[in-house]
């Protein structure tokens, strides 16, 4: 505490090193992974990639909820821009995988995930957005914070499971009546392989510029207001 002089004393520290526990846990993860590897390599792969993903998510504080919410709530768009950059990188990656398969005549991977597009997409996205802001995290974020020991999100996870089960139970009806009749849109079929990636990257770039300008304008307005006081 060099800079700010505070009157009250900070509460006594009870901070303990977590490194021994971390090493112990790391060894446990490794041991379980090796056990999985003996019975099923796929399971071991899921185990290690899942834990690696969670680790990156926690350390990078990459929050999808905040990337959408903070722009409106606090005027900060740093995470919005970070997510857009991630989208751009994955777009190029997926495009390369699909285009490579197309060129060599193999079936294009991931086509099963080209879901029918319609109003249900908008409705679902809106509901998901509403839920993640109230719960304080999207699916991965909630799981990560449960791991950190944040009590409120354990409740969120409980209802996340209940909701998922309810959804899975009557998903068939929605699927047959609304989702399947809607058209499937695969951009490369509409605009060609190079056109589709160009259009996608231009849209992402425009969103990035908009987010940047909006963030700076909000920041400017906020500091201007404090200066006037």
């Amino acid at each position: 505490m060099a800079g700010i002089k505070r009157h009250s004393h900070p509460r006594p520290r009870r901070h303990r090193s977590q490194i021994p526990l971390g090493i112990l846990f790391g060894l446990l993860v490794l041991w379980i992974g090796i056990r999985f590897l003996r019975s099923s390599p796929t399971l071991a792969f899921f185990w290690f990639t899942g834990i690696a993903f969670g680790f990156v998510l926690q350390k990078a504080r990459f929050c999808f909820t905040a990337s959408m919410r903070d722009a409106f709530l606090t005027g900060r768009t740093r995470l919005t821009k970070a997510v857009l950059v991630a989208f751009a990188i994955t777009s190029v990656g997926f495009w390369a995988l699909m285009f490579g398969a197309h060129q060599s005549g193999r079936p294009i991977p991931g086509m099963a995930f080209v879901a029918p597009l319609g109003l249900h997409t908008v409705a679902g996205a809106f509901l998901f957005g509403l839920g993640m802001v109230i719960a304080g995290g999207c699916a991965s974020g909630t799981l990560m914070r449960v791991g950190e020991g944040f009590t409120m999100q354990i409740i969120a996870l409980l209802f996340f499971i209940i909701g998922s089960l309810l959804g899975a139970a009557h998903f068939r009806w929605w699927d047959v009546t609304i989702i399947q009749p809607a058209p499937r849109v695969h951009l490369p079929q509409l605009f060609g392989w190079f056109g589709s990636i160009a259009i996608q990257l231009v849209i992402i770039a425009l969103l990035w510029i908009a987010a940047d300008k909006y963030g700076k304008a909000r920041q400017h307005a906020a500091t201007g207001r404090t200066a006037q006081k």
Partner: peptide
Amino acid sequence: RDAGHNVEIEEIDNG
């Protein structure tokens, strides 16, 4: 910090 205030963080306990 972006708003121009001085900021210090103290970790009181784990988390």
